[in-house]
Design a protein around this nucleic acid. Structure first.
Lengths: 143, 143
DNA sequence: GTATGTGCAAACTTTTTGCACTTCG
DNA sequence: CGAAGTGCAAAAAGTTTGCACATAC
């Protein structure tokens, strides 16, 4: 929780209870929550925070680079509080999205695009979308 | 246009003027149009087609595998009528999204994931999201 | 104290849906 | 002809916004 406050002020953002709550929520709901999930959680734990405020704060946090928007195959906007470089595993059968870290792969790709530059385009970030099926249930269940 | 009819019937879909128009539109608006763009185009060229119908048809075409939803970094749902395997180049400064074909890269990645399987996950499709800047514009040059 | 942020509710935008009518096969 | 698709318009869902009040710094 203290870390959340630190993050906010490190970006020069005013630390309000509402912002702390939203950033904390996105961090806790670690499986790429959608706006709906975030608002539901907020309204349960902080009933006094208005939904309009949540929308405004999510936008501010994205602008500040404290969270990221993740696109799903469906049309739901999701957020991600993990800022380290990582890829995403999408289930072709469910809404599940897992993070995937692979430093070796990152190195491989960096090297590849250094050797094989794309004409007219400078690569700044590489992110993989791996679609497939989760064969084992290493489930992260919600309380 | 005939190709569009062929695609529809090849999937066992009934060929209606509305479906032809929508599939043709997504194909013509080749730069990954959003729902808004598609509906605007349709209403201009086929004013009698209802927007509700467009939504229904887009969903049907996605289910049939004739078009795909594209995951963008921002919050706009876009569609793609290109079915061959390809990756996407995203501008970090604009809404532009280009297709990127790279068979060599695909081979490299397939080999990589064959050797380095992800525990609990079977990869079915690999798609790269390359974010960066377009240094030269093929259509119009900007100083 | 002041610039900034928030609550609230209304306005907007986008998407879905029920039903009578139409049309493809 | 019959099953499937469409138009229409209303409703649901999701998001934005103006303004008076509250608050972080």
């Amino acid at each position: 929780m203290d870390a959340v406050i630190k993050k906010l002020s490190s970006k020069g953002l005013r630390v309000t209870p509402q912002r702390v709550a939203v950033l904390d929520t996105v961090t806790r709901l670690n499986n790429h929550p959608g706006t709906g999930q975030i608002i539901a959680f907020i309204q349960k734990h902080h009933p006094s925070i208005a939904t309009g405020t949540v929308y405004r704060i999510l936008e501010i946090l994205v602008q500040a680079g404290l969270i990221r928007k993740v696109r799903t195959g469906d049309d739901i906007m999701r957020y991600d509080a993990v800022l380290e470089k990582h890829h995403h595993l999408y289930s072709s059968k469910s809404e599940r999205i897992d993070d995937h870290y692979d430093a070796k792969l990152d190195t491989l790709l960096d090297a590849y695009f250094k050797k094989n530059a794309i004409p007219g385009f400078t690569v700044e970030d590489i992110q993989l979308q791996l679609t497939g099926t989760f064969s084992k249930n290493k489930l992260k269940r919600k309380p």
